[in-house]
């Protein structure tokens, strides 16, 4: 459906915006390396089923997400390392890993390796933006491209919510993926403050600056 497709392309667009920002400004300043590593972990643990992915659409996106994230991490850790300031990127990711790990172990759909890792990836994704938002809060402002990146990334999961509602009514089984839906709503709530400032400032041509 349209929400799902727009969501996935928003996700892809966010990655292109981020790569464009890093390469055009030859800098990864303002980007949280910790959030990027968490996204890498999200992709690895979610796409363990990559070799068995039957849908070409999903397969292509999975390969694109994993490879582009690897490239972003390479750029941040090697090519543009001097522009990456660890003193601003100080969020304690062990809390996020603990949160995702605990929920994955307590409530997986099934106690299999794939299911536990899948649940872990869903919960981890829901909070993986926090180091980035924390960094933004510390610097108080962001380059336009960084703000566009975070907005597109947040829009992706937000668009999954109408997708789930649409699927619930349009598919005869009326299935609800409780883990994905709960985590997706949590993820979107975490972005809400950012979305508000993005809407009131950046979309009106102003700089992204915290009040």
């Amino acid at each position: 459906n349209i929400f799902r497709v727009l969501g996935d392309f928003s996700h892809l667009a966010s990655i292109f915006i981020l790569l464009h920002k890093i390469q055009q400004l030859k800098s990864c300043s303002g980007i949280s390396f910790k959030s990027q590593v968490l996204y890498m972990l999200v992709y690895i643990t979610r796409y363990l089923d990559l070799p068995w992915t039957s849908s070409p659409y999903n397969f292509i996106f999975k390969v694109l997400f994993i490879s582009s994230e690897l490239y972003i991490i390479y750029l941040m850790a090697r090519a543009y390392k001097p522009t990456n300031d660890p003193n601003l990127d100080t969020f304690h990711v062990e809390f996020l890993l603990g949160f995702a790990g605990l929920l994955a172990l307590l409530f997986p759909y099934k106690y299999t390796i794939l299911e536990v890792f899948w649940a872990f990836s869903i919960w981890l994704e829901s909070v993986a933006i926090l180091p980035q938002l924390f960094m933004l809060q510390r610097t108080g402002e962001a380059e336009a491209m960084t703000a566009h990146y975070i907005a597109a990334l947040g829009m992706y999961r937000a668009l999954y919510i109408p997708n789930w509602i649409y699927r619930y009514f349009s598919e005869p089984t009326h299935k609800v993926d409780t883990i994905a839906v709960t985590a997706g709503i949590l993820q979107t709530i975490l972005y809400s403050d950012f979305f508000w400032i993005y809407y009131t400032k950046v979309m009106r041509g102003e700089k992204f600056k915290l009040p």
Partner: peptide, 10 residues
Amino acid sequence: EPGVPIKDEL
């Protein structure tokens, strides 16, 4: 499988 949604999303 009952209870396990098909992982057809990203």
